[in-house]
């Protein structure tokens, strides 16, 4: 399982995240977990909804951008968040993602709310291979 941390020294009013994964699948899953943690306390979400998401992009970094943007989109359109996911990234330009999402509705009576992300920014946006896996930096506008 990958790891994430929120960076404080970047973009004061927003939320910068650094995400690490042992491979791309792990990094994308961990990024989704970090985003869910930003929005809610995952322990207060009933995991009653399963979804499949497929995406395609010209480059890996754009696939990560689209992946997180999709999760923010679902948060607004369906008022659902997905703390758990199983992701498979394949291909080399274009690259494809297939994800099985597990989460649930944002329930005002049950869910402990965090921030309401507006968008993924390109500010200092990066996805790169490192020793032992991959690392990404993402600033979320909140």
């Amino acid at each position: 399982m990958g790891a994430y941390r929120f960076l404080e020294e970047v973009a004061l009013a927003d939320c910068a995240m650094e995400i690490e994964g042992r491979d791309l699948d792990d990094l994308f899953e961990t990024a989704a977990q970090a985003l869910a943690r930003l929005m809610v306390d995952p322990a207060t979400v009933a995991l009653t909804v399963e979804r499949t998401v497929t995406l395609e992009a010209a480059r890996l970094d754009l696939l990560l951008y689209d992946w997180l943007s999709e999760l923010i989109f679902l948060k607004d359109r369906d008022r659902e968040v997905f703390p758990q996911s199983r992701v498979r990234v394949t291909g080399e330009g274009p690259v494809r993602l297939t994800a099985e999402l597990r989460g649930g509705p944002i329930d005002p009576d049950r869910t402990a709310l965090g921030a309401d992300p507006k968008a993924v920014t390109f500010h200092q946006f990066a996805l790169e291979p490192v020793d032992g896996g991959w690392r990404a930096r993402v600033v979320i506008d909140i």
Partner: peptide, 18 residues
């Protein structure tokens, strides 16, 4: 403008980057 404006910003940032 809530999610509506946020998505328009996202759509066009992505387009302009391209």
């Amino acid at each position: 403008s809530r999610g509506f404006g946020h998505q328009i910003g996202t759509d066009y940032l992505r387009l302009f980057d391209d």
